[in-house]
Computed example of a mutant assay.
Amino acid sequence: MKKKPKAKQNAPRHEEWTVREHTEVLEFLFKVMPSKSRNAVKGILKRGQIVVNDKPTTQFDDKLKPGDHVQIRARVASASIKLKGVTILHEDDDVIVIDKESGLLSMGSKQERQMTAYKQLMDYVQSIHPKNRVFIVHRLDRDTSGVMIFARSKIVQQKLQKSWTEAVQERSYVALVEGIVQKGGTITSWLTEDKTFMMHSSPKPNNGQKAITHYKVLKSNRRFSLLKVSLETGRKNQIRVHMQELGHPIVGDKKYGSEINAINRLGLHANVIKFTHPTSGKVMRFESETPSSFTRGF
C-alpha cells in the first residue's frame, strides 16, 4: 500500500466532518467541537472559517443535511499584506500581541493619516475576513519600541482596560538615559498636561494623575546608564517625565530635556508584558529583545 505523501509543514490545517443527520450549522459545530467554548465556536463561524460543501458560510442557522461536508479552514492572511515595523508575537481569538518598532504610531488621529500599527493590524485581520476588527488596549509613544496588546473585540478591549491593574502583573521597559545613575529607586508624583501637550510632574497632589515608576540600574559608564523601569501606573509620557525629574533624561528625548541623541532614536523600549488572558485566564508573558543600539557603548 502506498504511503500518503507528507503534508507540507507550513500548510494550513483543516478540520472536516460529514453530516449524519438534519441540523443547523451552529448546533452541528457545538457537537463536533465540545472542547471549545461556545464563544470560540461562534467566533470561528463569524470569521468565515466554516465551509459547507466548498462554500464559506457565516450563518448560524444554515441548514445541514446528511452527506453534507463541513470544514474549518485555517485563518490565512492575504499575501499582499506586508507588516512594516510590526512583528506579531502571539495571536488567538481574543488578543494579538505585537512588537512595534520605534518611529511607528500606535494609532492615528484625525490629523495623523499615515500608516500606524493599528491600521496595519486592521488590514491584516480583514484580509482574513472583512468583518474582523482589532481594538487598541494601550499605547506606546511613536518613538518607543516594544510589546503591545490589541484586542480582537470590543468586549475583550473593555475587559482588559477595566481590569488593567489586576490583569497586568509585569510591565517593564529598558531605558537608556544620560549620565550616571548611582542606584535604583522609586519616583511617585502627580502628572498634568498643558495646552502644548507637555506633561508636568509635581511631588504633591494637584488634580493630576498619580504616577509611580520603579527603576533599577543595569549598566552605566561615564556618559550613559541603562535602566530597567517598571510601572505601577501607565500615564502618558510617564517614564520620560520621571527620568527628566530624576536629572537623567532619556537619550534622544529632546522634548523632556535630552541633549544627546547618540542612537538616532528615543532610548526607551517596552521589553516585557505579563498578563492574565481575558478569556482563558492563563498567565501569558511576552518579551522583546533590547535593541542592540542601547548596549553598544557598554
Rank of each mutant, 00 (worst) to 15 (best):
E112R: 03
P278M: 11
K63S: 15
P34D: 02
P130A: 05
K159V: 03
G108I: 10
K131S: 15
T116A: 01
Q59D: 13
P66L: 07
R73C: 10
F150W: 07
T279C: 07
D92I: 01
L226Y: 12
I212V: 15
A79C: 02
Q111L: 10
I273H: 07
D123R: 04
K274P: 00
E21Y: 11
G43K: 14
G48C: 08
D92N: 10
I88H: 00
G108V: 11
R133V: 01
H248R: 04
V283Y: 05
F286K: 06
I128E: 10
K31Q: 13
A117L: 08
L231F: 10
V168Y: 02
P130I: 00
M198C: 11
S145V: 07
R133T: 04
V156E: 05
F28P: 00
S280A: 07
N53Y: 03
G252E: 01
R139E: 05
D92L: 01
L246C: 05
S220W: 09
R113T: 14
M148N: 03
S172M: 03
R73L: 11
V52K: 01
P249R: 11
R20E: 15
I81V: 15
A79R: 14
G247E: 07
R75W: 04
S102F: 03
K8M: 08
Q158L: 09
T188W: 11
K254N: 09
D123N: 12
N10L: 10
A175R: 06
T279P: 00
G43F: 05
Y124E: 02
R142K: 15
A167N: 03
E16C: 10
Y118F: 13
Q49E: 12
K65N: 05
I44Q: 11
